[in-house]
Protein backbone atom coordinates (compact mmCIF):
# COMPACT_ATOMS: atom_id res chain seq x y z
CA UNK A 1 0.00 0.00 0.00
CA UNK A 2 1.56 3.19 -1.13
CA UNK A 3 1.67 6.24 1.04
CA UNK A 4 1.33 8.55 -1.88
CA UNK A 5 -1.93 9.74 -3.30
CA UNK A 6 -0.15 10.94 -6.38
CA UNK A 7 3.34 10.66 -7.80
CA UNK A 8 4.34 12.72 -10.78
CA UNK A 9 7.70 11.91 -12.26
CA UNK A 10 9.37 14.06 -14.90
CA UNK A 11 6.12 15.16 -16.45
CA UNK A 12 6.41 17.13 -19.64
CA UNK A 13 3.52 18.37 -21.72
CA UNK A 14 4.14 20.04 -25.04
CA UNK A 15 1.79 21.58 -27.55
CA UNK A 16 3.85 21.54 -30.68
CA UNK A 17 6.82 23.75 -29.86
CA UNK A 18 5.24 25.22 -26.78
CA UNK A 19 6.10 23.55 -23.49
CA UNK A 20 3.27 23.92 -20.99
CA UNK A 21 4.80 21.76 -18.28
CA UNK A 22 8.48 20.97 -18.14
CA UNK A 23 10.02 18.03 -16.35
CA UNK A 24 7.80 18.33 -13.30
CA UNK A 25 8.10 15.91 -10.40
CA UNK A 26 5.79 15.99 -7.44
CA UNK A 27 4.69 13.63 -4.70
CA UNK A 28 1.52 14.11 -2.78
CA UNK A 29 1.19 12.15 0.41
CA UNK A 30 -2.05 10.64 1.53
CA UNK A 31 -3.97 12.82 3.91
CA UNK A 32 -2.40 16.14 3.09
CA UNK A 33 -3.71 19.28 1.49
CA UNK A 34 -1.26 20.15 -1.18
CA UNK A 35 -1.22 23.55 -2.82
CA UNK A 36 0.10 24.16 -6.30
CA UNK A 37 0.83 27.82 -6.51
CA UNK A 38 1.68 29.82 -9.56
CA UNK A 39 0.70 32.78 -11.71
CA UNK A 40 -1.79 32.47 -14.51
CA UNK A 41 -0.48 30.47 -17.41
CA UNK A 42 2.25 28.81 -15.37
CA UNK A 43 0.97 25.33 -16.20
CA UNK A 44 -1.14 24.51 -13.14
CA UNK A 45 -4.28 23.54 -15.02
CA UNK A 46 -2.28 21.68 -17.63
CA UNK A 47 -0.61 19.63 -14.90
CA UNK A 48 -3.94 18.80 -13.31
CA UNK A 49 -5.68 17.99 -16.57
CA UNK A 50 -2.83 15.78 -17.64
CA UNK A 51 -3.03 13.89 -14.36
CA UNK A 52 -6.71 13.23 -15.02
CA UNK A 53 -6.10 12.02 -18.55
CA UNK A 54 -7.94 14.91 -20.19
CA UNK A 55 -4.66 15.73 -21.84
CA UNK A 56 -2.09 13.23 -22.96
CA UNK A 57 1.37 13.58 -21.52
CA UNK A 58 4.36 14.08 -23.74
CA UNK A 59 6.78 12.47 -21.32
CA UNK A 60 6.92 11.25 -17.77
CA UNK A 61 4.92 9.10 -15.45
CA UNK A 62 1.93 9.81 -13.30
CA UNK A 63 0.64 7.47 -10.66
CA UNK A 64 -2.55 8.26 -8.81
CA UNK A 65 -3.65 6.14 -5.86
CA UNK A 66 -1.12 3.59 -7.00
CA UNK A 67 -2.65 3.40 -10.48
CA UNK A 68 -1.29 4.41 -13.84
CA UNK A 69 -2.90 7.65 -14.94
CA UNK A 70 -3.27 6.52 -18.52
CA UNK A 71 -4.07 2.84 -18.25
CA UNK A 72 -6.35 3.04 -15.23
CA UNK A 73 -7.93 6.40 -15.95
CA UNK A 74 -11.46 5.14 -15.33
CA UNK A 75 -10.61 3.56 -11.99
CA UNK A 76 -8.76 6.71 -10.94
CA UNK A 77 -11.74 8.88 -11.82
CA UNK A 78 -13.96 6.60 -9.78
CA UNK A 79 -11.89 7.46 -6.76
CA UNK A 80 -11.08 11.06 -7.55
CA UNK A 81 -13.18 14.20 -7.35
CA UNK A 82 -12.27 17.05 -9.65
CA UNK A 83 -13.19 20.69 -9.87
CA UNK A 84 -12.07 22.13 -13.20
CA UNK A 85 -10.66 25.63 -13.35
CA UNK A 86 -13.13 26.45 -16.03
CA UNK A 87 -16.37 24.65 -16.69
CA UNK A 88 -19.88 25.03 -17.99
CA UNK A 89 -23.15 23.43 -16.94
CA UNK A 90 -25.88 21.85 -19.02
CA UNK A 91 -28.53 24.46 -19.65
CA UNK A 92 -32.19 24.32 -18.93
CA UNK A 93 -32.23 21.87 -16.04
CA UNK A 94 -32.10 22.36 -12.30
CA UNK A 95 -28.84 22.34 -10.41
CA UNK A 96 -30.00 19.23 -8.59
CA UNK A 97 -30.81 17.39 -11.82
CA UNK A 98 -27.39 18.16 -13.18
CA UNK A 99 -25.52 17.20 -10.03
CA UNK A 100 -27.55 14.05 -9.68
CA UNK A 101 -26.68 13.17 -13.27
CA UNK A 102 -22.95 13.54 -12.54
CA UNK A 103 -23.41 11.55 -9.36
CA UNK A 104 -25.06 8.76 -11.33
CA UNK A 105 -22.14 8.72 -13.73
CA UNK A 106 -19.97 8.09 -10.70
CA UNK A 107 -22.33 5.27 -9.68
CA UNK A 108 -23.07 6.95 -6.37
CA UNK A 109 -26.62 6.45 -5.20
CA UNK A 110 -26.76 8.60 -2.09
CA UNK A 111 -27.30 12.31 -2.58
CA UNK A 112 -26.92 13.05 1.11
CA UNK A 113 -23.52 14.65 0.81
CA UNK A 114 -24.66 16.62 -2.23
CA UNK A 115 -27.53 18.10 -0.26
CA UNK A 116 -25.41 18.69 2.80
CA UNK A 117 -22.72 20.55 0.84
CA UNK A 118 -25.30 22.63 -1.01
CA UNK A 119 -26.86 23.60 2.28
CA UNK A 120 -23.59 24.65 3.80
CA UNK A 121 -22.58 26.64 0.75
CA UNK A 122 -26.04 28.17 0.56
CA UNK A 123 -26.65 26.85 -2.95
CA UNK A 124 -30.26 26.60 -4.09
CA UNK A 125 -30.56 23.22 -5.81
CA UNK A 126 -33.86 24.11 -7.43
CA UNK A 127 -32.40 26.94 -9.46
CA UNK A 128 -31.98 26.48 -13.19
CA UNK A 129 -28.37 26.07 -14.22
CA UNK A 130 -28.49 28.89 -16.72
CA UNK A 131 -29.72 31.37 -14.13
CA UNK A 132 -26.69 31.08 -11.87
CA UNK A 133 -24.26 33.85 -11.03
CA UNK A 134 -20.54 33.22 -11.32
CA UNK A 135 -20.25 32.56 -7.60
CA UNK A 136 -23.17 30.16 -7.55
CA UNK A 137 -21.81 28.33 -10.54
CA UNK A 138 -18.54 27.91 -8.70
CA UNK A 139 -20.46 26.49 -5.75
CA UNK A 140 -21.99 23.90 -8.08
CA UNK A 141 -18.44 23.01 -9.12
CA UNK A 142 -17.30 22.68 -5.53
CA UNK A 143 -20.29 20.53 -4.60
CA UNK A 144 -19.77 18.21 -7.56
CA UNK A 145 -16.08 17.76 -6.73
CA UNK A 146 -16.86 16.67 -3.20
CA UNK A 147 -20.30 15.06 -3.41
CA UNK A 148 -19.18 11.58 -4.44
CA UNK A 149 -17.08 11.36 -1.28
CA UNK A 150 -13.96 10.19 -3.08
CA UNK A 151 -10.60 9.68 -1.43
CA UNK A 152 -8.62 12.05 -3.61
CA UNK A 153 -9.83 15.51 -4.48
CA UNK A 154 -8.29 17.69 -7.15
CA UNK A 155 -9.34 21.31 -7.18
CA UNK A 156 -8.27 23.80 -9.83
CA UNK A 157 -8.57 27.32 -8.43
CA UNK A 158 -11.47 26.37 -6.21
CA UNK A 159 -12.31 29.73 -4.64
CA UNK A 160 -12.54 31.76 -7.85
CA UNK A 161 -15.78 33.69 -7.70
CA UNK A 162 -16.63 32.74 -4.12
CA UNK A 163 -17.21 35.60 -1.69
CA UNK A 164 -15.02 35.79 1.48
CA UNK A 165 -17.68 34.21 3.68
CA UNK A 166 -18.08 31.29 1.30
CA UNK A 167 -14.31 30.94 1.05
CA UNK A 168 -14.18 30.48 4.81
CA UNK A 169 -16.88 27.84 4.70
CA UNK A 170 -15.04 26.17 1.87
CA UNK A 171 -11.75 26.09 3.81
CA UNK A 172 -13.64 24.61 6.73
CA UNK A 173 -15.06 21.89 4.51
CA UNK A 174 -11.60 21.16 3.15
CA UNK A 175 -10.18 20.77 6.65
CA UNK A 176 -12.97 18.36 7.50
CA UNK A 177 -12.22 16.36 4.38
CA UNK A 178 -8.61 16.19 5.46
CA UNK A 179 -9.64 15.03 8.92
CA UNK A 180 -11.75 12.35 7.29
CA UNK A 181 -8.56 11.07 5.69
CA UNK A 182 -8.97 12.56 2.24
CA UNK A 183 -6.14 13.92 0.19
CA UNK A 184 -6.58 17.28 -1.47
CA UNK A 185 -4.52 18.63 -4.33
CA UNK A 186 -5.45 22.18 -5.17
CA UNK A 187 -4.07 24.85 -7.42
CA UNK A 188 -4.29 28.51 -6.68
CA UNK A 189 -2.78 31.81 -7.51
CA UNK A 190 -3.90 33.19 -4.16
CA UNK A 191 -1.08 32.93 -1.69
CA UNK A 192 -3.11 33.57 1.44
CA UNK A 193 -5.43 30.75 0.52
CA UNK A 194 -2.64 28.25 0.22
CA UNK A 195 -1.14 29.46 3.47
CA UNK A 196 -4.47 29.08 5.18
CA UNK A 197 -5.44 25.58 4.16
CA UNK A 198 -2.46 23.75 2.75
CA UNK A 199 0.19 21.95 4.65
CA UNK A 200 2.50 21.67 1.69
CA UNK A 201 3.04 23.90 -1.28
CA UNK A 202 4.76 23.75 -4.60
CA UNK A 203 5.37 26.77 -6.73
CA UNK A 204 5.26 26.46 -10.48
CA UNK A 205 6.48 29.16 -12.77
CA UNK A 206 6.78 29.18 -16.52
CA UNK A 207 6.09 25.45 -16.75
CA UNK A 208 8.70 24.52 -14.19
CA UNK A 209 8.50 23.56 -10.56
CA UNK A 210 10.67 25.90 -8.54
CA UNK A 211 9.80 25.04 -4.96
CA UNK A 212 8.18 22.23 -3.01
CA UNK A 213 8.03 22.55 0.76
CA UNK A 214 5.93 22.13 3.86
CA UNK A 215 4.25 25.36 4.81
CA UNK A 216 5.71 25.12 8.31
CA UNK A 217 9.22 24.62 6.93
CA UNK A 218 8.73 27.60 4.72
CA UNK A 219 7.54 29.65 7.62
CA UNK A 220 10.55 28.53 9.67
CA UNK A 221 12.76 29.21 6.75
CA UNK A 222 11.42 32.64 6.17
CA UNK A 223 11.32 33.31 9.88
CA UNK A 224 9.86 36.28 11.68
CA UNK A 225 10.25 39.97 11.25
CA UNK A 226 11.51 41.81 14.27
CA UNK A 227 11.11 45.58 14.34
CA UNK A 228 12.68 47.51 17.18
CA UNK A 229 12.59 51.24 17.91
CA UNK A 230 15.50 52.36 20.07
CA UNK A 231 15.90 55.57 22.10
CA UNK A 232 19.18 56.27 20.34
CA UNK A 233 20.73 55.27 17.09
CA UNK A 234 22.17 51.79 17.28
CA UNK A 235 24.94 50.29 15.20
CA UNK A 236 23.20 47.57 13.11
CA UNK A 237 26.39 45.50 12.91
CA UNK A 238 25.55 44.26 16.39
CA UNK A 239 22.86 42.13 14.89
CA UNK A 240 24.90 40.61 12.12
CA UNK A 241 24.86 37.15 13.57
CA UNK A 242 23.81 33.77 12.19
CA UNK A 243 20.12 33.49 11.46
CA UNK A 244 19.51 37.18 11.02
CA UNK A 245 19.04 38.60 7.55
CA UNK A 246 17.65 41.60 5.76
CA UNK A 247 18.68 44.17 8.32
CA UNK A 248 17.19 47.54 7.51
CA UNK A 249 17.91 50.75 9.36
CA UNK A 250 15.45 53.61 9.43
CA UNK A 251 16.78 56.32 11.71
CA UNK A 252 16.31 54.84 15.21
CA UNK A 253 14.35 51.86 13.95
CA UNK A 254 15.91 48.59 12.91
CA UNK A 255 14.00 45.89 11.04
CA UNK A 256 15.43 42.42 10.57
CA UNK A 257 14.38 38.92 9.63
CA UNK A 258 15.10 36.23 12.18
CA UNK A 259 15.10 32.68 10.92
CA UNK A 260 16.84 30.87 13.75
CA UNK A 261 16.97 31.09 17.50
CA UNK A 262 15.54 34.43 18.51
CA UNK A 263 17.15 34.28 21.96
CA UNK A 264 20.51 35.70 20.85
CA UNK A 265 18.82 38.55 19.03
CA UNK A 266 16.65 39.53 21.95
CA UNK A 267 19.66 39.54 24.25
CA UNK A 268 21.50 41.91 21.92
CA UNK A 269 18.47 44.14 21.66
CA UNK A 270 18.42 44.29 25.44
CA UNK A 271 21.83 45.98 25.40
CA UNK A 272 20.09 49.15 24.30
CA UNK A 273 17.17 51.15 25.51
CA UNK A 274 14.06 50.05 23.66
CA UNK A 275 11.00 52.22 23.04
CA UNK A 276 8.88 49.85 21.04
CA UNK A 277 9.18 46.37 19.64
CA UNK A 278 7.09 44.36 17.19
CA UNK A 279 7.52 40.74 16.19
CA UNK A 280 5.49 39.44 13.28
CA UNK A 281 5.35 36.22 11.38
CA UNK A 282 6.94 36.67 8.03
CA UNK A 283 4.23 35.86 5.60
CA UNK A 284 4.90 33.79 2.53
CA UNK A 285 4.28 36.90 0.60
CA UNK A 286 7.90 37.89 0.33
CA UNK A 287 8.89 34.44 -0.65
CA UNK A 288 6.17 34.36 -3.19
CA UNK A 289 7.32 37.65 -4.64
CA UNK A 290 10.84 36.41 -4.77
CA UNK A 291 9.85 33.40 -6.82
CA UNK A 292 7.26 35.16 -8.84
CA UNK A 293 9.31 38.08 -10.12
CA UNK A 294 9.19 39.02 -13.77
CA UNK A 295 5.69 38.69 -15.03
CA UNK A 296 3.73 36.64 -12.60
CA UNK A 297 3.55 39.17 -9.84
CA UNK A 298 2.67 42.12 -11.97
CA UNK A 299 -0.22 40.25 -13.46
CA UNK A 300 -1.49 39.08 -10.12
CA UNK A 301 -1.22 42.49 -8.57
CA UNK A 302 -3.37 43.81 -11.32
CA UNK A 303 -6.02 41.30 -10.45
CA UNK A 304 -5.61 42.39 -6.87
CA UNK A 305 -6.06 38.96 -5.46
CA UNK A 306 -2.76 37.23 -5.31
CA UNK A 307 -1.03 39.22 -2.66
CA UNK A 308 -2.95 39.61 0.50
CA UNK A 309 -6.23 39.17 -1.29
CA UNK A 310 -7.26 36.18 0.74
CA UNK A 311 -9.10 36.46 3.98
CA UNK A 312 -7.52 35.36 7.19
Amino acid sequence: MTNYAMKIKNLTKKYGDFTAVKNLSLDIEKGEIFGLLGPNGAGKSTTIRTCLGLLSKTEGEIEILGLDSHKDAIEIRKRTGYLPGEFGLLDGISVYTYLKYLLRLSSVKSDEKLKDLAKRLDLDLKRKTNELSKGNKQKVGVVQALMADQEFIILDEPTGGLDPLMQQIFYEILREEKEAGKTVFMSSHVLAEVETVCNRVAIIKEAELILNEHISTLQDMTGKVLEVEFRHKVDPSAFEIEGVTDIEVDDRKIRMTVTKDIDQVVKRVADHRVINMNLSTYSLEKLFLRYYSNGGVVENEKEGVAIGGGVK
Binding site: L54, E75, R77, T80, E86, L89, Q144, A145
Partner: peptide, 8 residues
Protein backbone atom coordinates in the same frame (compact mmCIF):
# COMPACT_ATOMS: atom_id res chain seq x y z
CA UNK B 1 -16.13 18.05 -21.10
CA UNK B 2 -14.04 18.44 -17.94
CA UNK B 3 -17.02 17.81 -15.68
CA UNK B 4 -18.21 14.85 -17.71
CA UNK B 5 -14.76 13.28 -17.81
CA UNK B 6 -14.15 13.83 -14.14
CA UNK B 7 -16.63 10.99 -13.71
CA UNK B 8 -15.68 7.41 -14.55
Amino acid sequence: MDLIFSTP
